[in-house]
Design a protein around this nucleic acid. Sequence first.
DNA 1: TATTGTTATACTCTATAACTATA
DNA 2: TATAGTTATAGAGTATAACAATA
Lengths: 155, 155
Amino acid sequence: MTIDTVDGLVQLSFVIHGMLENLASEHELSIIQTRLLGILRDRTPSMNELAVLLSLDKSSVSGLVDRAARRGLVERVSSSADRRVVRVRLSEFGRSLVRDVSARFTADIEQLLGGLSPSERSTLTDMMNRILMGHATARGIDSFARGDQPDISGG
Amino acid sequence: MTIDTVDGLVQLSFVIHGMLENLASEHELSIIQTRLLGILRDRTPSMNELAVLLSLDKSSVSGLVDRAARRGLVERVSSSADRRVVRVRLSEFGRSLVRDVSARFTADIEQLLGGLSPSERSTLTDMMNRILMGHATARGIDSFARGDQPDISGG
DNA sequence: TATTGTTATACTCTATAACTATA
DNA sequence: TATAGTTATAGAGTATAACAATA
C-alpha cells in the first residue's frame, strides 16, 4: 500500500526524528541536549544566544546548561568584555559524544537512503533544497545551512 | 548555498516537526497529546495498546490520558469483556480539535510543497514510499500506513 | 500466577515572575 | 534604566517500582 506526498513527508520526518531520538538515548541524551551539543560544535555562544538558537526562554537554557554541565558535557566560561555574559563551551567528553551520535546518525540516514540510485539522490536533494529554500525565504531567512558536519542541531 | 541529501532530509524533518508543534500549540496541545488524539480518530484502544502505539510505558499513558481527560479531550470507557481493561475514546471536543490541527497541518505541508510540479511531486512520493518501505521491512513491519486522513499520529 | 491499569516517586524540560549583577 | 543570567515555582512528560483488581 502506498501513501501520498503529504503523508509520506510526515511519516518520513517522524522516522528520522525517531532515529535521532533512539541514537541519542543510547548516550542518555535527549533531543534538546543533543541539539545543544550540536550547536556548540562550532560555536561558544552566550546563554542569550543559545536561547535564540534553541527557541527557548533564557531560564530554560539555564536549566538545560546546568544539567549538561553537571554531567560534564559543557562548561560555563565567563566572558572577558561584558562581565554579565556567560558563554557555553563543549567539553572534550561532550565533543566525543556528539561526534559519535552525529557519525552514527549520518550512517543511519545513509542506510535509509540505500535504495536510491545516485541520480535519484541528486533529484531528491535538489527538490529538498528548493522546499527548504522556499520555506526559509517565506520566513525571511537567507542562510539556513552552513558547515560540513551533519546538522544535528535542528536549526 | 545548498546542502547534501542527508542534511536536507534532517533539516526537512525538523521543519515539519516544528510545523506540527506550532500548529498544535495554538490549541495548547503538545506533540504527544496530538499523536494521542490522532490515534483515537479511528480507534478506541486499551491503555496497553496505547502504550504500544505510542512507545510509552503504561504509567506514562496513565498520566497522558489523565491530563487529556481533565481537559475534556478524551474519555475512559470500561471494557465489557475483561473488566481489567480500560479503553480510551475521543470526545467530540477532542475530535473537533484534531480535525482542525490535521486540516491545517495538511494545508501547511501542501504550501511547503508549492514549488514542485505535479510530476516532481509524483517522483518525490515514489522515492519516499520506497524509503519508508525499506525502513519498514528492515524492522519487520509490513503495513505502516492506512486510512485517508493525514497521519498526525507519528506512526 | 499473570495481566491490566493506577499510584508514588524522581527526573527532565519548559515557561513565568522575581531576583542579582553589570552596563 | 536596560540587559544578562539565575532562582523559585509550577506544570507536562517520562520511567521504575510497588500496588490493586481481575483473569
